Amino acid sequence: MGAIEGEFWSADTHGVQAPLTDEAVREAERVLGVVLPAVLIELLRVQNGGGVVSGRSAYPTNTPASWAPDHVPFEGLMGIGSTGDALTILHTPYLVREWGLPERVVLLTGDGHWWIALDYRVCGPAGEPSVVWLDAEMDEDLTLAPSFQSFVEALAPAAAFGESG
């Protein structure tokens, strides 16, 4: 793969959407009102959502988060589409309203109580979004990485951290 080295997707097919097309990307960007990062589109062209390999199942944090003092989980990445009953990036507008999350974010993964999202609040809809941890119950908003690429490059095995969640 170009920008991301090594394996990313696991054999877990839950949440996998139909293969990503240029039309689907354009429609998603229209619905979400943002330009999605090229690295995200690159990953979703390989596999449109699903589980990630165990070697990339957590993001190390320097600041304690509600999940754990040293990391947050990243076991899957939502795709773009409407196949099956899995949540996708296209559900972001509804989920932001439902969970009282900040506007101008695009949700990448989460369980309702917490989310990892692209944050367009500072960069604007065409800028390079940072990646944030949002905990809806704890009202926590923690910047994880300055870009999606730097986020993916820093992912680590959850097993490298102690008990959590």
Rank of each mutant, 00 (worst) to 15 (best):
A158G: 01
W133F: 15
G124K: 11
L101M: 11
S54N: 12
E23S: 13
Q47E: 11
Y94G: 07
P129W: 03
A156V: 06
G2A: 13
V96A: 03
Q149S: 13
A156W: 02
I4C: 08
A158I: 12
E23V: 12
E163I: 06
E98S: 10
V122C: 08
F151D: 11
W114Y: 14
G2N: 11
A28F: 05
A58I: 08
T92P: 04
R97F: 07
P146G: 14
V152E: 08
G81P: 05
E163P: 03
V46H: 09
V122P: 00
R26P: 00
L36E: 10
Y94C: 04
I116L: 15
F151W: 13
R97C: 09
A18H: 09
T61P: 07
A58T: 09
P129I: 03
G112N: 07
Q17Y: 02
G79E: 04
G110F: 06
V53G: 03
L43T: 04
A65H: 01
P157Y: 04
E29K: 07
V46N: 00
G84A: 11
S82A: 14
S164V: 03
H71A: 14
D111P: 01
Y59D: 07
G124C: 12
V25P: 01
A158K: 11
V52R: 05
L44S: 02
D85Q: 08
V122N: 11
L36W: 08
V39M: 01
L44M: 06
E103S: 14
A160M: 07
R56F: 03
P125T: 11
A154P: 00
R97S: 14
A136H: 09
E98T: 11
A160N: 12
A68Y: 07
G162M: 02
E153P: 00
G6P: 04
S82V: 01
S164G: 15
M78T: 00
A38F: 08
V106H: 02
V53S: 06
A28D: 07
E163T: 12
V31N: 00
W115Q: 12
R56L: 04
G165S: 12
G2R: 12
G49Q: 07
N62I: 03
L95I: 09
Q149E: 15
C123P: 01
M78Q: 08
I4A: 10
G127W: 02
V131P: 09
Y120H: 05
E7Y: 10
I41V: 15
T61Q: 09
V39K: 04
E163N: 06
S164A: 15
H71C: 15
V31I: 15
E128N: 13
E140W: 09
G55Y: 00
G162L: 02
T143S: 14
A3H: 13
A68D: 12
P93G: 07
V122L: 14
A145Y: 11
I80T: 01
L134Q: 05
L155K: 07
P125K: 10
T21Q: 05
W9K: 04
V132N: 00
V46E: 15
R104P: 00
D22S: 11
F151Q: 12
V25E: 02
S10I: 04
